[in-house]
Design a protein around this nucleic acid. Structure first.
Ligand code: FES
Ligand code: FES
Lengths: 149, 149
DNA sequence: GAATACTTGACAATTTTACTAAGGTATTTT
DNA sequence: AAAATACCTTAGTAAAATTGTCAAGTATTC
């Protein structure tokens, strides 16, 4: 359950590739497609959204591609997914564009709200730099050791 | 993003209703349907799964319904969702029934794995008793006060 | 002007979701 | 025994979302 769409997944992987060229080497869609095994046409869609969201900028012509707008340490996974799929909203009741008439007195409202906040809080702490440096793996390892004690 | 299906949502709300009859008052599908605004036919499907998973047992005949197998404090949201929709698996790569050939060297694998673990850890801490007592709201409130300090 | 590479919008196949329908079984009450 | 209550099980289905593809652009460089 709670599956993330491929668009979100591919988007993060594409952003990781683009981060590798920061700050001055544009990364082409073709290059990303090859290294991450995703079709060029699909990536076009995804990168376009990220560009409109201001996370990356594009360089046309030969040698062109995409470049990160901010340094990798300042681009969180939350920001990427937010642009591609909107904010975390476990239920339609929590979606700013939908809402729910039962909110008052609904026993599960706070549950899904809290969960959503926890998820986003985590995603805000992880950046493209973390992906590149493997920080996440180390963090996770530390947690496990702590828990098994 | 990361929407939970209505099946999972309704399932939790149904379990909350059933918890109210614990330990000896069976709650009928019809009653749940009325109080939670969900169709009887759909609930039948959902409760059947929960029954097969051993979370509830059924009492047939007039005055019958469903009863929790364990006390509310011992039934976590994680257990309910697990039965209805399987374990948390942010990507197909993390799904025990699917997997992924790219796992080695994939920079996002640990990211989705960690997120999934965090989500499940949270859902394991929340029980039906918490829903009924509003514990969650208080917990959340405390967190907010702490963070705003 | 030829090659490279991003841009945009439409569209189609597939899968998942969110149910409905219908007939059956078990239990209790009268 | 019969009627009423309530769970049990499978099948089907319409709508929505997902997961892409396709084609015809525009801009830049060499
Ligand atoms: S059903 Fe919408 S808030 Fe609970
Ligand atoms: S793509 Fe499957 S593990 Fe990264």
């Amino acid at each position: 359950m709670l599956r993330l769409s491929t668009k979100g997944q591919y988007g993060v992987r594409a952003m990781f590739e683009i981060a590798r060229g920061y700050p001055d080497k544009p990364i082409s869609i073709k290059g990303i497609a090859e290294r991450q095994d995703v079709s060029v046409a699909y990536l076009e869609q995804i990168l376009n959204k990220l560009k409109n969201g201001g996370l990356i900028r594009s360089v046309k012509g030969p040698g062109g591609g995409y470049v990160l707008s901010k340094k990798p340490a300042d681009v969180s996974i939350s920001a990427i997914l937010n642009e591609l799929e909107g904010p975390v909203a476990i239920t339609s009741c929590l979606d700013p564009e939908e809402g729910c008439v039962r909110v008052d007195g609904c026993v599960t409202y706070m549950l899904w709200k809290s969960l959503g906040e926890k998820i986003d809080a985590f995603l805000r702490t992880v950046t493209l730099k973390d992906l590149a440096s493997g920080t996440l793996f180390k963090k996770n390892l530390k947690l496990k050791i702590k828990n098994s004690k």
